[in-house]
Amino acid sequence: MSERLASLLQDQASVGSGRDKFEVKKLDFFYDKFNALTDITVGIAEHAVTAFIGPSGCGKSTFLRCLNRMNDLIPGTRVEGQILLDGQEIHGPGVDPVDLRRRVGMIFQQPNPFPMSIYDNVAYGPRLHGMRKKSELDGIVEESLKRANLWKEVKDILGRGGLTLSGGQQQRLCIARVLAVEPDVLLMDEPCSAIDPTSVQKVEDLMAELKDRITIVIVTHNMQQAARVSDFTAFFLQEMAGEPAHLIEFERTAALFTSPKDKRTEDYITGRFG
Protein backbone atom coordinates (compact mmCIF):
# COMPACT_ATOMS: atom_id res chain seq x y z
CA MET A 1 0.00 0.00 0.00
CA SER A 2 2.62 2.50 1.03
CA GLU A 3 4.39 2.66 -2.34
CA ARG A 4 1.29 3.52 -4.28
CA LEU A 5 0.42 5.90 -1.51
CA ALA A 6 3.79 7.53 -1.57
CA SER A 7 3.65 8.24 -5.28
CA LEU A 8 0.16 9.51 -4.84
CA LEU A 9 1.20 11.83 -2.10
CA GLN A 10 4.53 13.02 -3.43
CA ASP A 11 3.10 15.28 -6.08
CA GLN A 12 1.35 17.49 -3.57
CA ALA A 13 4.22 19.89 -3.55
CA SER A 14 2.69 23.10 -2.35
CA VAL A 15 -0.62 23.03 -0.61
CA GLY A 16 -3.32 25.52 0.22
CA SER A 17 -2.77 29.23 0.50
CA GLY A 18 0.39 28.82 2.53
CA ARG A 19 -1.04 30.39 5.64
CA ASP A 20 -2.85 28.98 8.64
CA LYS A 21 -6.60 29.43 8.99
CA PHE A 22 -6.61 28.25 12.59
CA GLU A 23 -3.75 28.57 15.01
CA VAL A 24 -4.25 26.52 18.14
CA LYS A 25 -1.87 27.20 20.99
CA LYS A 26 -1.49 25.16 24.16
CA LEU A 27 -5.10 24.08 24.19
CA ASP A 28 -6.49 22.12 27.13
CA PHE A 29 -10.07 20.97 27.15
CA PHE A 30 -12.18 19.85 30.10
CA TYR A 31 -15.48 18.04 30.45
CA ASP A 32 -16.15 19.16 34.02
CA LYS A 33 -13.19 17.68 35.89
CA PHE A 34 -12.08 15.39 33.08
CA ASN A 35 -9.14 16.83 31.15
CA ALA A 36 -9.86 15.35 27.71
CA LEU A 37 -7.16 17.13 25.68
CA THR A 38 -3.94 18.69 26.77
CA ASP A 39 -1.28 20.91 25.31
CA ILE A 40 -2.54 20.87 21.73
CA THR A 41 -0.60 23.21 19.49
CA VAL A 42 -1.32 23.00 15.82
CA GLY A 43 -1.93 25.11 12.73
CA ILE A 44 -4.69 24.28 10.28
CA ALA A 45 -3.62 25.25 6.79
CA GLU A 46 -5.98 27.43 4.81
CA HIS A 47 -7.52 25.96 1.66
CA ALA A 48 -6.16 22.53 2.43
CA VAL A 49 -7.56 19.35 3.94
CA THR A 50 -6.34 18.40 7.40
CA ALA A 51 -7.16 14.95 8.77
CA PHE A 52 -7.42 14.03 12.44
CA ILE A 53 -6.71 10.40 13.15
CA GLY A 54 -6.35 8.33 16.29
CA PRO A 55 -7.99 5.56 18.26
CA SER A 56 -11.55 5.84 19.48
CA GLY A 57 -11.96 8.12 22.47
CA CYS A 58 -8.75 10.09 21.89
CA GLY A 59 -10.59 13.38 21.60
CA LYS A 60 -10.73 13.97 17.84
CA SER A 61 -14.38 14.96 17.92
CA THR A 62 -13.82 17.00 21.04
CA PHE A 63 -11.06 18.96 19.37
CA LEU A 64 -13.06 19.43 16.20
CA ARG A 65 -15.97 20.79 18.21
CA CYS A 66 -13.64 23.24 19.94
CA LEU A 67 -13.01 24.88 16.58
CA ASN A 68 -16.60 26.10 16.20
CA ARG A 69 -17.35 26.22 19.91
CA MET A 70 -20.00 23.52 19.64
CA ASN A 71 -18.77 22.29 23.01
CA ASP A 72 -20.20 25.48 24.51
CA LEU A 73 -23.57 23.76 24.23
CA ILE A 74 -22.48 21.03 26.66
CA PRO A 75 -22.80 22.28 30.21
CA GLY A 76 -19.63 22.12 32.30
CA THR A 77 -17.09 22.21 29.49
CA ARG A 78 -14.09 24.51 29.66
CA VAL A 79 -11.23 25.53 27.40
CA GLU A 80 -7.75 26.77 28.26
CA GLY A 81 -5.25 28.09 25.78
CA GLN A 82 -5.85 29.85 22.50
CA ILE A 83 -7.64 29.19 19.27
CA LEU A 84 -7.12 31.86 16.64
CA LEU A 85 -9.24 32.04 13.51
CA ASP A 86 -7.58 34.35 10.98
CA GLY A 87 -5.57 35.69 13.88
CA GLN A 88 -8.60 36.43 16.07
CA GLU A 89 -9.16 34.60 19.34
CA ILE A 90 -12.48 32.77 19.02
CA HIS A 91 -13.08 32.88 22.75
CA GLY A 92 -12.29 36.57 22.87
CA PRO A 93 -14.66 39.01 24.52
CA GLY A 94 -17.43 40.04 22.20
CA VAL A 95 -17.02 37.09 19.85
CA ASP A 96 -20.43 35.71 19.06
CA PRO A 97 -20.31 31.91 18.85
CA VAL A 98 -23.33 32.07 16.55
CA ASP A 99 -21.37 34.14 14.05
CA LEU A 100 -18.35 31.87 14.45
CA ARG A 101 -20.46 28.87 13.53
CA ARG A 102 -21.64 30.60 10.37
CA ARG A 103 -18.04 30.79 9.27
CA VAL A 104 -17.06 27.36 10.54
CA GLY A 105 -19.61 24.81 9.36
CA MET A 106 -19.89 21.25 10.53
CA ILE A 107 -20.86 17.85 9.14
CA PHE A 108 -21.69 15.06 11.55
CA GLN A 109 -21.23 11.31 11.46
CA GLN A 110 -24.95 10.63 11.29
CA PRO A 111 -26.61 12.54 8.46
CA ASN A 112 -29.04 14.91 10.16
CA PRO A 113 -31.27 16.65 7.65
CA PHE A 114 -34.20 18.59 9.04
CA PRO A 115 -37.63 17.01 8.64
CA MET A 116 -38.53 19.41 5.86
CA SER A 117 -38.19 19.46 2.10
CA ILE A 118 -34.84 19.18 0.34
CA TYR A 119 -35.23 22.77 -0.79
CA ASP A 120 -36.03 24.06 2.69
CA ASN A 121 -33.09 22.18 4.14
CA VAL A 122 -30.66 23.94 1.85
CA ALA A 123 -32.43 27.29 2.14
CA TYR A 124 -32.38 27.07 5.93
CA GLY A 125 -29.07 28.85 6.45
CA PRO A 126 -29.61 31.68 3.97
CA ARG A 127 -33.09 32.27 5.40
CA LEU A 128 -31.64 32.37 8.91
CA HIS A 129 -29.39 35.13 7.78
CA GLY A 130 -32.20 37.13 6.34
CA MET A 131 -32.44 36.14 2.69
CA ARG A 132 -36.05 36.11 1.53
CA LYS A 133 -36.07 36.57 -2.22
CA LYS A 134 -37.22 33.42 -3.97
CA SER A 135 -35.02 33.92 -7.01
CA GLU A 136 -31.89 34.37 -4.91
CA LEU A 137 -32.74 31.37 -2.75
CA ASP A 138 -33.39 29.25 -5.84
CA GLY A 139 -29.95 30.14 -7.11
CA ILE A 140 -28.22 29.34 -3.85
CA VAL A 141 -30.07 26.05 -3.45
CA GLU A 142 -29.11 24.91 -6.92
CA GLU A 143 -25.51 26.05 -6.59
CA SER A 144 -25.08 24.41 -3.17
CA LEU A 145 -26.60 21.13 -4.29
CA LYS A 146 -24.30 21.14 -7.31
CA ARG A 147 -21.25 21.74 -5.18
CA ALA A 148 -22.36 18.90 -2.90
CA ASN A 149 -22.61 16.52 -5.89
CA LEU A 150 -26.30 15.99 -5.27
CA TRP A 151 -28.04 18.23 -7.78
CA LYS A 152 -28.47 15.62 -10.53
CA GLU A 153 -30.16 13.21 -8.15
CA VAL A 154 -32.62 15.64 -6.59
CA LYS A 155 -33.25 18.44 -9.07
CA ASP A 156 -36.73 17.14 -9.86
CA ILE A 157 -37.73 16.32 -6.28
CA LEU A 158 -36.73 19.46 -4.39
CA GLY A 159 -40.10 19.53 -2.65
CA ARG A 160 -39.74 16.07 -1.22
CA GLY A 161 -38.79 15.48 2.41
CA GLY A 162 -35.06 15.40 3.07
CA LEU A 163 -35.52 12.31 5.19
CA THR A 164 -36.82 10.34 2.22
CA LEU A 165 -33.34 10.32 0.66
CA SER A 166 -30.84 7.50 1.17
CA GLY A 167 -28.25 7.87 3.92
CA GLY A 168 -25.51 8.87 1.51
CA GLN A 169 -27.75 11.37 -0.23
CA GLN A 170 -28.79 12.76 3.14
CA GLN A 171 -25.16 13.32 4.03
CA ARG A 172 -24.59 15.21 0.79
CA LEU A 173 -27.76 17.17 1.49
CA CYS A 174 -26.25 18.15 4.83
CA ILE A 175 -23.11 19.24 3.03
CA ALA A 176 -25.18 21.32 0.61
CA ARG A 177 -27.01 22.84 3.55
CA VAL A 178 -23.74 23.94 5.13
CA LEU A 179 -22.30 25.18 1.84
CA ALA A 180 -25.33 27.39 1.36
CA VAL A 181 -24.07 29.68 4.13
CA GLU A 182 -20.65 29.88 2.47
CA PRO A 183 -18.50 28.90 5.42
CA ASP A 184 -14.73 29.50 5.36
CA VAL A 185 -14.10 26.24 7.14
CA LEU A 186 -15.83 22.86 7.00
CA LEU A 187 -15.41 20.53 9.95
CA MET A 188 -16.32 16.95 9.10
CA ASP A 189 -16.62 14.41 11.89
CA GLU A 190 -16.39 10.96 10.29
CA PRO A 191 -18.65 12.11 7.47
CA CYS A 192 -18.34 8.86 5.56
CA SER A 193 -18.65 6.21 8.20
CA ALA A 194 -22.41 5.81 7.94
CA ILE A 195 -22.88 6.01 4.18
CA ASP A 196 -22.63 3.84 1.07
CA PRO A 197 -19.40 3.53 -0.99
CA THR A 198 -20.73 5.47 -3.97
CA SER A 199 -21.60 8.38 -1.76
CA VAL A 200 -18.21 8.13 -0.05
CA GLN A 201 -16.62 8.53 -3.44
CA LYS A 202 -18.78 11.56 -4.17
CA VAL A 203 -18.00 13.14 -0.83
CA GLU A 204 -14.27 12.63 -1.34
CA ASP A 205 -14.54 14.13 -4.81
CA LEU A 206 -16.34 17.17 -3.57
CA MET A 207 -13.80 17.71 -0.81
CA ALA A 208 -11.10 17.92 -3.48
CA GLU A 209 -13.21 20.44 -5.40
CA LEU A 210 -14.10 22.50 -2.35
CA LYS A 211 -10.66 23.03 -0.95
CA ASP A 212 -9.86 25.75 -3.48
CA ARG A 213 -12.18 27.97 -1.51
CA ILE A 214 -12.70 26.25 1.82
CA THR A 215 -10.50 24.96 4.59
CA ILE A 216 -11.48 21.42 5.49
CA VAL A 217 -10.83 19.43 8.63
CA ILE A 218 -11.89 15.80 8.61
CA VAL A 219 -11.93 13.22 11.37
CA THR A 220 -11.66 9.72 10.02
CA HIS A 221 -10.99 6.19 11.18
CA ASN A 222 -10.12 5.16 7.69
CA MET A 223 -6.36 5.48 7.06
CA GLN A 224 -6.79 5.11 3.31
CA GLN A 225 -9.29 7.92 3.33
CA ALA A 226 -6.99 10.14 5.36
CA ALA A 227 -4.19 9.39 2.92
CA ARG A 228 -6.41 9.97 -0.12
CA VAL A 229 -8.06 13.21 0.82
CA SER A 230 -5.81 15.10 3.19
CA ASP A 231 -2.78 17.31 2.86
CA PHE A 232 -1.91 17.32 6.55
CA THR A 233 -2.57 14.72 9.18
CA ALA A 234 -2.67 15.04 12.94
CA PHE A 235 -2.41 11.94 15.09
CA PHE A 236 -4.00 12.09 18.54
CA LEU A 237 -3.55 9.54 21.27
CA GLN A 238 -4.80 9.04 24.78
CA GLU A 239 -2.22 6.74 26.28
CA MET A 240 -4.05 5.87 29.47
CA ALA A 241 -7.75 5.85 30.25
CA GLY A 242 -8.64 8.88 32.31
CA GLU A 243 -5.53 10.75 31.19
CA PRO A 244 -5.78 13.61 28.71
CA ALA A 245 -5.01 12.94 25.06
CA HIS A 246 -2.03 14.52 23.30
CA LEU A 247 -1.28 15.51 19.77
CA ILE A 248 1.46 12.98 19.02
CA GLU A 249 2.42 13.92 15.52
CA PHE A 250 1.40 16.51 12.98
CA GLU A 251 2.88 16.35 9.51
CA ARG A 252 2.28 16.59 5.82
CA THR A 253 0.12 13.54 5.13
CA ALA A 254 2.71 12.07 2.76
CA ALA A 255 5.42 12.28 5.36
CA LEU A 256 3.29 11.01 8.21
CA PHE A 257 2.18 7.93 6.36
CA THR A 258 5.49 7.07 4.69
CA SER A 259 7.94 7.97 7.42
CA PRO A 260 6.28 8.62 10.74
CA LYS A 261 8.66 10.18 13.22
CA ASP A 262 6.99 8.77 16.29
CA LYS A 263 6.94 5.07 17.08
CA ARG A 264 3.34 5.38 18.34
CA THR A 265 2.19 6.92 15.07
CA GLU A 266 3.83 4.11 13.16
CA ASP A 267 2.19 1.51 15.37
CA TYR A 268 -1.18 3.11 14.81
CA ILE A 269 -1.04 3.55 11.06
CA THR A 270 0.30 0.05 10.56
CA GLY A 271 -2.62 -1.19 12.60
CA ARG A 272 -0.77 -2.40 15.65
CA PHE A 273 -3.19 -0.81 18.05
CA GLY A 274 -6.38 1.22 18.12
Binding site: V98, R102, G105, F108, H129, C174, V178
Partner: peptide, 17 residues
Protein backbone atom coordinates in the same frame (compact mmCIF):
# COMPACT_ATOMS: atom_id res chain seq x y z
CA UNK B 1 -33.48 13.77 17.33
CA UNK B 2 -30.58 15.54 19.03
CA UNK B 3 -28.66 15.63 15.74
CA UNK B 4 -31.18 18.10 14.38
CA UNK B 5 -30.52 20.56 17.16
CA UNK B 6 -26.79 20.21 16.65
CA UNK B 7 -27.19 20.71 12.92
CA UNK B 8 -29.12 23.91 13.47
CA UNK B 9 -26.73 25.35 16.04
CA UNK B 10 -23.74 24.37 13.94
CA UNK B 11 -25.12 26.48 11.12
CA UNK B 12 -25.13 29.58 13.22
CA UNK B 13 -28.73 29.49 14.33
CA UNK B 14 -29.55 30.99 17.70
CA UNK B 15 -31.49 29.04 20.26
CA UNK B 16 -34.60 31.01 19.40
CA UNK B 17 -34.20 30.36 15.67
Amino acid sequence: PEGIREASYSMGATKWQ
